[in-house]
Amino acid sequence: MTLEQAIPIIQKACQKMNRDFGGTLFDEWAIVRTARGKLFLEHYEGPRRDEFIQQFHVETAELKSASMAYHRGHYHVGDYEFTPDGAGSKADAFLKMGMDAFLVFGNTRLSMKEITQNPRWLKAQAEFANLSERVISDPLALSGSPQGPEL
């Protein structure tokens, strides 16, 4: 899929997760691209774009640590990771969308530990898994040079 196709698919999945969760599950998400050994923001939705860009490496540190601990950073399209330590504006989860693209999720009010204590999380988690399955069958393919700012 293209970036233009991925955005409404992600928006719809987030709406379903919110409905199933009974409130806002992830109030920000971003598509991040790797190119030339650097990270670039391809798309962001949420309340704090500038802060997300400036603080990206700090706010994804726990998630990166979790990914290195469990999979040594090697993920296939459709793989995902959560961190219970993503409190506040820290990133809570990511989903590998394509060969060089990740979808990063955050809840700026709740940590994953708090989210998973809500019994409705299990139902919302099913939609997250559906999104994973969707990208396995049709990965995000980004062409050309990165369009967004370097992170």
Rank of each mutant, 00 (worst) to 15 (best):
M1N: 05
Q5E: 12
I7V: 10
I7L: 04
K12V: 07
Q15T: 14
K16F: 10
N18P: 09
D20I: 00
F21K: 04
G22P: 05
G23E: 12
L25M: 14
V32Q: 00
L39G: 05
L41V: 10
G46C: 10
R48V: 07
E51Y: 12
T60S: 11
A61D: 15
A61I: 07
E62V: 12
K64C: 07
K64H: 14
K64E: 02
A69G: 02
Y70W: 05
G73A: 10
Y75E: 10
V77P: 02
V77W: 03
D79G: 03
D79A: 06
D79N: 13
Y80T: 06
F82V: 04
F82W: 13
D85E: 15
A87E: 13
A87Q: 12
G88I: 05
G88C: 11
S89W: 07
S89F: 09
D92H: 02
F94L: 12
F94T: 05
F94I: 03
L95Q: 05
G98T: 04
M99N: 15
A101S: 15
L103A: 08
L103V: 03
V104H: 02
G106Q: 11
N107Q: 09
N107C: 06
R109V: 03
R109F: 08
K113S: 13
E114W: 05
I115N: 00
Q117G: 13
N118R: 14
P119C: 01
R120L: 13
R120E: 11
Q125I: 00
E127C: 00
E127M: 10
A129C: 09
S132Q: 10
S137V: 08
D138E: 14
P149C: 08
P149G: 02
